[in-house]
Write a protein that binds this DNA or RNA. Structure first.
Length: 675
DNA sequence: GCCGTTTTCGGCCCGACTGTTTTCAGTCG
């Protein structure tokens, strides 16, 4: 049963650092990769998302074909350029400015232009999609198995999918291939198991739980001078592959520290232990108490494997790499293993431009090192007490880990224009929360109490609407009665001089043609409406333009205040439906400009983190306020706003960009701007 | 495939680790 569920999801998620990126951008669509069909309405025949996704997929398919790596890279670069474009993509193509973009030359430029203007994909791309077995793409998700060896497996043994691969391993057919052996055969089997369980990645909340537990244990080891969690966990990516920890200590203590680490609790297996690096597999025995996964709404639970999910987490593991370096190297190693790869490339290039070489050991004047390499050369490194010093030496202000993705942070740093990112302390409340009226676990009163314990000034209650039977959606009468109760509480607090207040909303299901639940008479009584899609099957089966049109209709509805979990994606569970979110956000931006308040939710549940951080910056640019909502189904759920804050920071948001940093008076005023 | 130009083609970030090899290829970040 469990395996069935997991195999079902493997079809849509792939772990390959580039493939997974696409998954997280919600650009992947359904299971098998297919070139999108052109939009029925004509030019532009394809959206920015579709072009960016396609370029990326062509790049992956070229890798599997064994094409020139620089050629494949240019497809990835092109995809990146287009997905981060802030202008209207269609206009850029139509006005013939596409090839002015850095990274788009004659080849990509003419292919894209023809696709967008004529609705036809280049022949060689069509052929790539048709001739590559989709199972090979799934195999890229297996750790330590890349395009070259997959190509070899395909050519030598005729393997076209993960099931055949597993059978071949079990029949010991792989170990005899040149370049393979017993160990790599076993590694592939292990990797298949990992992929089946978690798509070889873990959600941010789970990663941070393990990471912080290990960090805490190591920091108590004598003679450890510095320790920090690095990697994607430090950068607060929505999911992480493995944990990276960096330790600073005197060289003479490295052995002792290393031995202490190997005897810590929670280690299921030791994959390797060298002079400077320890590779571990951690399991849940690292936690003193069992971890509480909280109450999930039914849709989320289903998407991540239903009832079997908790069992899976309880027996789950995570890989961790621990590196021990002399304290003087610590900032360099920390920066290096924090990444991202793209950010590091830019930083290294920046160092080269200044006659310096940047690596995990130091920042070293090239003139001094002759033929010395790595750690040998590091004796000539410029001193740094912290990462700040490294940035300073490269003429940049400090860039926080969340921003290190090479998505404009270097340029913003050069212009001294980095954002002052929001912190959790700025949050004054939240607007998407459930009570026992629908599928929540706590009463209105309990939720209000908990919000006050968090020092919030207000709380918005938005139970599920009538049509969502599966989540016990509230009928009109019950909803209106909830409103009366809220009024009563609000006036009682006011009489007592307590400034706390509740806002009364609803999470309305988005119905046919973008309609909301309930009659106008009911909607008029509410402070706000969170409009969300729940009919995922239907929305997944429609094309991007239909979904986009319906969402825009919903937003144009007078009573829609904000869009809830905008794409419906569940991390490690399912992709979102296809939608041109740029167009949706742009519509919201235009309405805000005209004095009509429309906000977009950043659903802070670690299972969702939707709006994706890559789109937060775009919402900010369009002047669309972001509401960081926990989608709480119980008291603990309110605390999920912290994950939303991490993602908001990653998405460049400042305090002023976020709705729930405003005072309750300001919020009330904004909510009243309906038309 | 893109870029930058020495305008016709060479260079494209770089190092560690692993498991294969017997000097290196593949993978990863």
């Amino acid at each position: 049963m469990l395996i069935d569920i997991l195999f079902k999801t493997i079809g849509t998620n792939y772990r390959h650092n580039q493939v997974i990126e696409i998954f997280h951008m919600n650009m992947g669509g359904g299971g098998v990769w297919k070139l999108p069909r052109p939009r029925a309405k004509g030019v532009p025949f394809f959206s920015r998302n579709q072009i960016a996704t396609t370029l990326h997929q062509v790049g992956v398919l070229l890798e599997l074909k064994g094409a020139n790596p620089f050629r494949t890279r240019s497809y990835f670069n092109g995809s990146r350029t287009i997905s981060t474009l802030t202008e209207d993509f269609g206009e850029v193509v139509i006005s013939g400015r596409l090839m002015d973009l850095k990274g788009i030359g004659k080849g990509l430029g003419s292919g894209i232009t023809n696709a967008v203007l004529e609705g036809e994909w280049p022949e060689d791309w069509i052929e790539l999609f048709e001739k590559t077995p989709s199972g090979l793409i799934v195999m890229l998700g297996i750790p330590n198995l890349g395009p070259k060896r997959i190509k070899l497996l395909n050519e030598e043994l005729g393997i076209t999918n993960i099931i055949e691969l597993q059978e071949s391993c079990e029949a010991s057919e792989i170990e005899d291939l040149s370049g393979f052996g017993k160990k790599s055969q076993q590694k592939i089997l292990d990797g298949i198991q990992l992929l089946k369980r978690f798509n070889a990645r873990r959600r941010l909340d789970i990663g941070l739980l393990y990471g912080n537990a290990l960090k805490e244990l190591i920091s108590n080891i004598p003679k450890v001078e510095q320790i920090e969690l690095a990697g994607s966990a430090r950068r607060k990516k929505e999911s992480i592959g493995d944990l990276d920890l960096v330790i600073g200590a005197k060289s003479e203590h490295h052995d002792e520290i290393s031995n202490s680490i190997l005897s810590l609790p929670g280690i299921a297996d030791i994959k390797g232990a060298g002079d400077s690096k320890i590779s571990l597999i951690l399991d849940t025995s690292i936690f003193e108490n069992e971890f509480n996964l909280g109450n999930l709404d039914g849709g989320v639970l289903d998407a991540i494997g239903g009832e079997d999910y908790e069992k899976m987490e309880a027996t789950g593991t995570i890989d961790a790499q621990v590196r021990i370096v002399p304290s003087n190297m610590f900032p360099f190693t920390l920066a290096y293993f924090t990444g991202s790869k793209e950010h590091n490339i830019r930083m290294r290039q920046r160092a080269l431009d200044r006659g310096l070489k940047l690596n995990e050991f130091g920042l070293i004047p090239i003139a001094k090192i002759d033929d010395l390499k790595g750690i040998e050369a590091a004796q000539f490194s410029i001193k740094a007490d912290s990462e700040e010093d490294i940035y300073k030496r490269l003429d940049l202000p400090y860039i926080v880990p969340e921003l290190r993705e090479d998505l404009g942070e270097i340029e913003a740093g050069e212009e001294n224009n980095l954002p002052e990112l929001i912190t959790i302390n700025s949050i004054r409340g939240a607007f998407h929360n459930h009570t026992i009226l629908s599928d929540g676990e706590a009463t209105l009163e309990q939720m209000a109490d908990e919000a006050q314990k968090l020092n919030w000034e207000y709380l918005g209650i938005s139970d599920h609407s009538e049509s969502l039977k599966i989540a016990n959606g509230a009928n009109a009468n019950d909803l209106l009665n909830q409103g009366k109760l809220i009024e009563k509480y609000n006036s009682t607090w006011k009489e007592k001089g307590n400034d706390f207040r509740l806002f009364h909303g609803v999470e309305s299901d988005i119905l046919e043609n973008g309609k909301l639940d309930y009659s106008e008479d009911v909607l008029r009584e509410l402070d706000y409406v969170v409009a969300s899609v729940h009919a995922m099957t239907k929305w997944n089966n429609r094309d991007e333009s239909e979904n986009t049109e319906d969402l825009i209709k919903t937003i144009e509805n007078k009573y829609t205040t904000m869009l809830g979990h905008p794409t419906g994606r569940i991390i490690q569970g399912r992709n979102g439906y296809e939608v041109d979110m740029h167009a949706v956000i742009r519509t919201m931006g235009d309405m805000n400009e005209n004095g009509i308040f429309k906000a977009i939710e950043l659903n802070a549940s670690p299972y969702r983190l939707d709006l994706d951080w890559r789109l937060c910056k775009f919402a900010k640019m369009c002047g669309v306020p972001v509401s960081i909502n926990p989608d709480a189904h119980d008291l603990m759920g309110l605390r999920d706003v912290r994950f939303g804050t991490y993602i908001a920071r990653k998405g460049w948001l400042e305090k002023s960009d976020v709705l729930n940093t405003k005072s309750s008076e300001e919020v009330a005023t904004l909510f009243s701007k309906r038309s």
